[in-house]
């Protein structure tokens, strides 16, 4: 599959995530759109990893070139899991204080 198809798909998913962050006011939905952007980047990393492997595997089929891309995806997933637990704890605390998940309430953070 040409690598451009994967780039276009991931760009579309990433832009949908950006549009979601810009257009929604619910803090949880905004957070979910950030997860969507992270997943688009993960898919692109795996596609590039397989692209490099395809060029390196022409002469040598036993090579592991490009395996680092998939390891980075693994580490991104780990960091995302940690980020989600802390972020949801912050959103729950915010809901407990303001009884709303509206991000427009967050401009009251100074008081």
């Amino acid at each position: 599959m040409p690598i451009q198809y994967y780039i276009y798909l991931c760009l579309t998913l990433f832009s949908i995530g950006i549009i979601g962050v810009l257009t929604r006011r619910n803090a949880i939905i905004v957070f979910m759109c950030v997860e969507l952007m992270l997943n688009a980047v993960n898919l692109l990393l795996v596609a590039f990893s397989k692209m490099h492997h395809a060029t390196a595997a022409v002469g040598n089929t036993a090579t592991t070139t490009g395996i680092e891309g998939q390891l980075f995806v693994f580490f991104i997933m780990v960091v995302a899991a940690a980020e989600v637990s802390v972020g949801l704890a912050i959103i729950v605390m915010m809901y407990r204080n303001t009884h709303s998940v509206d991000i427009n309430f967050l401009n009251r953070l100074k008081n």
Binding site: M1, P2, I3, Y6, V46, A47, F48, S49, K50, M51, H53, A54, T55, A57, T64, T65, G66, I67, E68, Q70, L71, F74
Partner: peptide, 21 residues
């Protein structure tokens, strides 16, 4: 002209990833 390798190549298998990891 660059192509992603589809449905072949063994870099994604758990054995090879675990060795490098």
């Amino acid at each position: 002209g660059r192509k992603a390798m589809m449905a072949e190549g063994d870099t994604g298998l758990i054995k090879n990833l675990g060795k490098v990891l």
